[in-house]
């Protein structure tokens, strides 16, 4: 069983984040990820960045990760 905190740590370890929140039930997770690295990236590229941060765990342990990916400006604007 994967806990939401370990998913949160995985994202934060692989991506410079201003803010990360993860909630989940062990298989399905929901994340809010705020990072300056998302600036200028499409939604697809942003999600790929988070998937890359999680690496193999995304294939093996995490069934579904629903996410919102925002830049700090978008987040402050209430994104």
């Amino acid at each position: 069983m994967v806990d939401a905190q370990s998913v949160r740590r995985g994202i934060a370890a692989g991506l410079a984040c201003e803010h990360v929140e993860v909630a989940g039930d062990g298989r399905h997770f929901e994340a809010l990820v705020v990072s300056r690295e998302f600036e200028g990236l499409s939604r697809v590229r942003r999600h790929q960045r988070v998937y890359a941060a999680l690496g193999e765990r995304m294939r093996e342990e995490i069934h579904a990760l629903s996410m919102r990916t925002l830049t700090p400006e978008e987040w402050r604007a209430g994104g």
Binding site: R43, M58, A64, R68
Partner: peptide, 24 residues
């Protein structure tokens, strides 16, 4: 280079998965 399903393609281009479809 996308680890989850569903995946949507329009005219051969990858558009996104379920979250991106919903946002768009």
């Amino acid at each position: 280079n996308w680890p989850t399903i569903p995946q949507l393609y329009v005219n051969g281009e990858f558009v996104g998965g379920s979250d991106i479809m919903r946002e768009m």
